[in-house]
Design a protein around this nucleic acid. Structure first.
Length: 448
DNA sequence: TTTTGAGTTGTTCGA
DNA sequence: GTCGAACAACTCAAA
């Protein structure tokens, strides 16, 4: 009998650890509520809880059920393993610094208790160690990484075990509640539906439309990927299967898979350089001083900067726990360049708010925008929030949806209401663009 | 070892 | 309105 420890892989289909354990006999599926992780983001906790509930339903339909425990994972898993009389403990590897330290502790505890720990790859299409430059080290430039990444063979997804034989009665805690938080539909079936909708409706226009804010062209898969309600292999296979018989989809599929490569690019950077979770991969220059301005940070967080595209996106984030990629770039650039606030403050806020908040991806993208990361945006590229708004939300639908104050502002001025005398209840910009741009250029200085 | 080609997502200015 | 140049050189990855 084997224990299967679920973490960021809350599904039954294409689950390497579950498949291997189930092939060997009865399994005990367990999720450990880890006090070291709980509470960092109440919204993401609720999202995980909702996905766990769906996972438990799926397990029950196959004759098993999820055992939930609370505490330090190494101690809880060893305790449960003894109660259940299992011989092996299976899980899918976590690549983040916290996850690696935790998993190493669990592995040691298992060995000390005479249990066999078995960790399998799952979090990426390509393992971080499998895509490496010929001359050693690891990739820090995206394009060569992407070329090497896309040349790798892909493993097809595996089906869910049809029936699970599970252990006798074991104590389990009630799943944490997700009440009071507005969430998308959670779980494996919901994630599959999101994927099917995207492949059907979104892939064709993805290459050209994905940055539009006044439509919903992105996949919306990220919250499901964060909890593993869907595997990357399933996504990859679905996209390739849809595009290969239809040349019209090839361009969209290519653009979308490239986004998956960006995920894995950042995952492998954090894997090879764990210190970049807090310290930039390439500090711009030692003298760059981030400003200390709590009021400006609070205005950014609350969506009260006076720039409609920034404020709409920040309010969407607060209301839903999600924001399209283009909007993330715009608000991040504004925090770092216009307000000259430390990217880590933005990283922390995003990790608190985002359903899909992931250390490797969030940190990597924030460093990219702040011009201190791998293959980063040059420091002199400073997004103009008005230009970006007009380009990607030409109809103004996006800003009006999240900023009802702007309902009466004519289209021509909806991204710069001050041009039309302002809008009732909407304050003027907290920084003036031209001045802020000049200040940022001076602060970031001539490149290193 | 040295050389060479290449490099996510922008903005502004002036012709 | 449209277009190209400047911004700033620098480092990576591979041949």
């Amino acid at each position: 009998m084997n224990l299967v420890w679920f973490r960021r892989d809350l599904r039954l289909a294409d689950h390497p650890a579950l498949a291997e354990a189930a092939a060997r006999g009865p399994v005990v599926p367990v999720f450990v509520l880890d006090p070291g992780l709980l509470g960092r983001s109440p919204r993401r906790d609720a999202w995980i809880a909702a996905t766990l509930a769906a996972l438990d339903d799926g397990l029950r339909a196959r004759g098993a059920r999820l055992i939930v425990r609370h505490g330090e994972p190494a101690a809880e898993l060893v305790r449960l393993a003894r109660e259940a009389g299992v011989s092996g403990v299976w899980w899918n590897r976590d690549t983040t610094p916290y996850g690696r330290a935790r998993d190493a502790a669990v592995e040691a505890a298992c060995r000390a208790a005479g249990l066999e720990p078995r960790a399998l790859g799952d979090a990426t299409l390509s393992e971080p160690d499998d895509v490496r430059p010929v001359h050693g080290g690891f990739y820090t430039v995206f394009s060569p990484y992407h070329r090497a990444w896309r040349a790798r063979d892909r493993v097809p997804p595996a089906p869910a075990p049809e029936r699970l034989v599970t252990a006798e009665a074991l104590d389990t805690l009630a799943l944490p509640g997700a009440a009071g938080v507005a969430l998308p539909a959670a779980g494996e079936a919901a994630a599959k539906a999101v994927l099917a909708t995207f492949v059907r409706d979104g892939l064709a226009g993805y290459a050209t439309e994905r940055d539009r804010l006044d439509a919903e062209p992105t996949s919306r898969l990220s919250p499901h990927l964060r909890v593993g309600a869907l595997s990357l292999r399933q996504i990859h296979a679905a996209v390739v299967a849809a595009a290969s018989p239809r040349p019209a989809l090839a361009e969209g599929a290519e653009a979308f898979l490239r986004q998956l490569a960006w995920r894995e690019f950042f995952v492998q950077i954090l894997w090879h350089a764990p210190a970049t979770r807090r310290a930039p991969l390439r500090p711009l220059r030692p003298g760059v001083r981030w400003r200390d301005d709590p009021d400006a940070l609070a205005a950014w967080q609350a969506g009260r900067t006076g720039y409609p595209i920034v404020d709409a996106a920040m309010r969407q984030l607060a209301a839903t726990g999600w924001m399209p990629n283009r909007a993330r770039m715009i608000v991040a650039s504004f925090l770092v360049k216009h307000l000259l606030l430390d990217w880590r403050a933005g990283d922390r806020w995003f990790m608190h708010e985002l359903l899909d908040g992931d250390p490797a991806l969030n940190g990597g993208n924030w460093q990219w925008v702040a011009s201190v990361g791998a293959d980063a945006l040059p420091a002199f590229r400073i997004f103009n929030p008005v230009t970006q708004g007009r380009r990607f939300d030409p109809s103004g639908r996006y800003v009006r949806r999240w900023l009802p104050e702007l309902a009466s502002v004519p289209n021509a001025h909806v991204h710069a209401p001050w041009e039309a005398g302002g809008a009732p209840g909407y304050a003027p910009p907290i920084v003036e663009h031209v001045e802020a741009r000049r200040r940022a250029l001076a602060a970031f200085g001539p490149s290193r």
